[in-house]
Amino acid sequence: MATNNSKTLARMMVTPAVILLLIWMLIPLGMTIYFSFLDYNLFGDGENKFIGLLNYEFFLTDPAFVDSFFNTLILMTGVLFITLVGGTGLAILLDQAIYGRNIVRIMVLAPFFVMPTVSALVWKNMFMNPVNGIFAYISTTFGFEPIDFFTHIPLTSIIIIVSWQWLPFASLILLTAIQSLDREQLEAAELDGAGKFCRFRFMVLPHLSRAMTAVVLIETIFLLSIFAEIFVTTQGGPGNASTNITYLIYTQSLLEYDVGMGSAGGLIAVVLANIVAVFLMRMIGKNIEG
């Protein structure tokens, strides 16, 4: 925007969109904050009394909250770890000159296009089912007791499902990063006497760090709010073993019809997400600036 004239014009043109966006965001946020201070149960007497911070107190002291908080973190870090390590490995494999590489790349990307509910159902019924699932079949073939995934290792099972969904995303981003690595650098390192592992450690990995940061940030946003996979498979159980904060809010506000408690939980989730975001930015954000 060069001149004052064009600046003013630009502001005027942008104003309607900004106002619309503000209304879109501020009204729901304001209503959520308002509800979170009310004793607002859909099966209640309709008085909706103001009860101060009581909703927050109940939500935070609920034993399910602590469980779900750690479940959220475990789910997030588990999936991040698997997708970063697996994604780097896959990216390196996909970077090799193999016959039909374009088709392989498209196929690797496929899980990302499957919607969460569908992929969770496929995993639940076709892979992890203790009677009909393929894992059970493999176990019994070798004479082992089949694992009942969603009963014995519910959170791990969900981590596996979500990792499967996000692996293509990580692979794709890391693959494009690997492809942008200057081949002459690798050749120079080879001449300098660096072996394969050394070249990966000193050339490829530092080159990928920026792409990895992007993967971590983007995935974190989505992983904090995993819902469909839990809803379809374990329903948060057994007990609270696979309940994350998103799912806890759902059970509070919709299964128990407690709008006030749900709103308070939602706001707490927003605060927690922001804490995680600030933490991440501090830790790895400087990678992106450079």
């Binding site: 200057d182 002459e184 650098q185 050749e187 120079a188 390192a189 080879e190 001449l191 300098d192 006497g193 660096a194 072996g195 000193f202 050339m203 530092p206 080159h207 760090s209």
Partner: peptide, 19 residues
């Protein structure tokens, strides 16, 4: 292998390690 030949090379793009 290149690393064993005892030769050093200067590339057109310099190929310095950027990090």
């Amino acid at each position: 292998p290149p690393g064993k030949r005892g030769l050093a090379m200067v590339f057109q793009s310099y190929a310095l390690y950027p990090h």
